[in-house]
Write a protein that binds this DNA or RNA. Structure first.
Lengths: 215, 215
DNA sequence: TAGATTGTTAATCGATTAACAATC
DNA sequence: TAGATTGTTAATCGATTAACAATC
């Protein structure tokens, strides 16, 4: 087991979300068995993953609060995370108005777009109106930004990434269907929604074939 | 190599998108080496993945058109795919107005929401205004729907899924942070955007620790 | 023919599971 | 103490890579 692999990190995030959910219902402890149900992970996998956190107690399970605390440290959710958004199209607006990030400590502080029509508008929890991309370098020089979300069109991705990197941004959350180049030390997470749809379509096709259906 | 695994399907989708991109620039053939660059996949992996498609030619590479044609069959993109949307919040609206799906044969035909204020409105390419969820069973009985996108709140996911399944929908593209139960034969793809953000945050945290930075 | 590049497979690498001793 | 459940590790399973003979 590699405590660095993509699959492992994905599971950590999943445990965390599940635990927060369970805590809402007043649950105080879980066994690996209980935690494993509903999240498509085996109990054995849960134990292997969580063992290094040192929170488990034989014969008892895991104290939810302790487990959450450890995971929050690992996931960097134990502190405030400032985000900015570049690209305020419909997808960008959806990100700004979605309130499912702030409960995990992530908040959009500012948003940037090239379209002058959008500049000056506000969305969601945004305290300041949308700014011009020209203001981005100055903003980065004067504010601490941990993550920049990117919802610009594919052609502009690399140039925006370059501005962000030059401005010292270390975390990039990219929604455009491209894989921009980033230097070492900059972490990029690509969310490729079209690929997700194609995956679904493949499995659908495959299951149609298995069942000899023509439609 | 398992020609059914999640990682393999993900790569197929990625090859396909890349090939369509290259074709736009008039490229007629690629080698595994060329196809592999820019998409974070090794040439060796490309050859293993594509070998069963029977399109490659020794000493020459792959004819882009042939490869695309084969992948389109596998991915079910060689025909029109009717989609509907349930849940027309900001995220739903972003999906409706995003025009990156239709070029891969996916089109939203109708959208449903419980909110009466939204009913009657139109978004993006939608031909008919947003309908009440009450109309969903009748719609499903009278139209062929291959994929239903779900952007409702987490509490409603399972009940909407039940309606969809009862109506014969075989493909569900779920954007709500839950894992609804579906019977065999129904394919579900979960897009968990919060987990994606948490993954990014974890790697950022990790890289901070590696570099002994406090911020 | 010479050069290029595939498809194949054995070797390697990595991830998951099963089983159970240790422990609360 | 008896029962429950962890953490550990060997075994298994699956995915990736490297190397090269086959082929165009």
């Amino acid at each position: 087991m590699d405590f660095n692999s993509d699959v492992y990190i994905k599971r950590l995030a999943r445990y965390y979300r599940r635990l927060v959910h369970l805590r809402q219902y007043g649950v105080l402890r879980v066994s690996s068995e209980e935690l494993a149900t509903h999240i498509k992970i085996s109990p054995s996998q849960v134990r292997t993953d969580l063992s290094k956190l040192g929170v488990g107690q034989s014969g008892y399970g895991y104290r939810i609060n302790n487990l959450i605390a450890e995971l929050e440290k690992l996931l960097g959710v134990d502190k405030r995370n400032n985000m900015i958004l570049v690209g305020v199209g419909k997808l960008g607006q959806a990100l700004l108005t979605y309130n499912g990030f702030s409960k995990y400590s992530f908040n959009f502080m500012a948003a940037f777009d090239i379209n002058p029509q959008l500049q000056g508008e506000t969305f969601g929890m945004l305290l300041e109106p949308v700014k011009s991309i020209k203001e981005l370098p100055y903003y980065l020089a004067t504010h601490k930004v941990s993550i920049a979300a990117l919802a610009v069109d594919p052609e502009s991705v690399q140039s925006v990434v370059d501005i962000l990197v030059a401005g010292g941004v270390k975390g990039i959350w990219n929604f455009a269907p491209r894989f921009p180049e980033v230097p070492d030390g900059v972490v990029i997470e690509n969310v490729h929604i079209q690929e997700s749809l194609l995956k679904l379509s493949f499995r659908l096709e495959e299951s149609r074939v298995e069942n000899n259906l023509t439609n």
